[in-house]
Amino acid sequence: MAIRSIVESDLSGKPDAATQTFGLGDTWYEIDLTPEEQKKLEEALKPYLKVGRKAEKTTPAKKRVVPETTPEERDEIRAWGKKNGYEFAGRGRIPKMIMKAFDEAHGIDRSK
């Protein structure tokens, strides 16, 4: 048994439409249009496309927040954490919760 999908135009309800995607501002839209309706959309946009430019994909750079510490400071933080009952691995990244607790206990502000 074969299943046939028919995409209808969102504007006219006519069959044989295809999904078109376009963006305006920060919002992307999808609409199902017949070939004739797609041509009308392209004609309507032609003056803007002619003078416009393609936008580059912009992905916000992830801000990596890693406190600058020396190996000696990290050893001190680890020792302080274990002494104060925190459980964490002896190697690798020191959990943020422990860094924050250490900084608060010692009046350290690393936000600068």
Score class of each variant (00 low, 15 high):
Ile31Glu: 01
Leu33Asp: 02
Glu37Pro: 03
Leu41Glu: 02
Pro35His: 08
Ala44Val: 09
Arg53Pro: 00
Val51Thr: 12
Ala44Cys: 08
Pro47Lys: 08
Asp75Phe: 12
Ala89Asp: 04
Asn84Val: 01
Asp32His: 06
Glu37Lys: 10
Leu49Phe: 07
Val65Asn: 13
Thr58Ala: 09
Gln38Thr: 15
Glu76Ser: 05
Glu30Thr: 11
Glu36Leu: 11
Arg53Gly: 04
Trp80Gly: 00
Thr70Cys: 03
Gly90Asp: 07
Lys40Asp: 11
Gly52Val: 01
Ala79Met: 09
Val65Pro: 08
Tyr48Phe: 15
Leu41Cys: 00
Ala55His: 07
Pro35Lys: 10
Val51Gly: 08
Glu42Phe: 05
Thr58Leu: 13
Pro47His: 03
Glu36Pro: 02
Arg91Asp: 05
Thr34Val: 07
Leu49Arg: 12
Lys83Ala: 15
Ala89Lys: 15
Pro60Ala: 12
Phe88Ala: 02
Glu42Asp: 13
Lys62Gly: 03
Ala44Ser: 14
Gln38Trp: 13
Ala44Lys: 05
Glu36Ala: 15
Lys50Thr: 10
Glu76Thr: 11
Asn84Lys: 07
Gly52His: 05
Pro67Trp: 06
Leu45Ser: 05
Thr34Glu: 01
Lys57Leu: 08
Glu76Asp: 08
Lys82Glu: 07
Ile77Asn: 01
Glu73Trp: 00
Val66Lys: 09
Gly81Arg: 00
Glu68Asp: 14
Glu68Gln: 13
Glu73Asp: 01
Thr70Arg: 04
Lys62Glu: 11
Glu72Ser: 01
Asp32Trp: 00
Ala89Asn: 12
Lys82Trp: 15
Glu42Met: 13
Lys82Gly: 03
Asp32Arg: 06
Gly52Ser: 02
Val66Leu: 02
Val51Tyr: 12
Phe88Pro: 02
Gln38Arg: 12
Glu72Lys: 15
Gln38Asn: 14
Lys63Tyr: 15
Lys82Asp: 07
Thr34Asp: 00
Lys83Met: 03
Lys40Phe: 02
Thr58Asn: 10
Arg64Ile: 06
Lys54Cys: 02
Lys63Met: 12
Leu49Met: 09
Ala44His: 06
Glu68Tyr: 14
Glu30Met: 04
Thr59Ile: 11
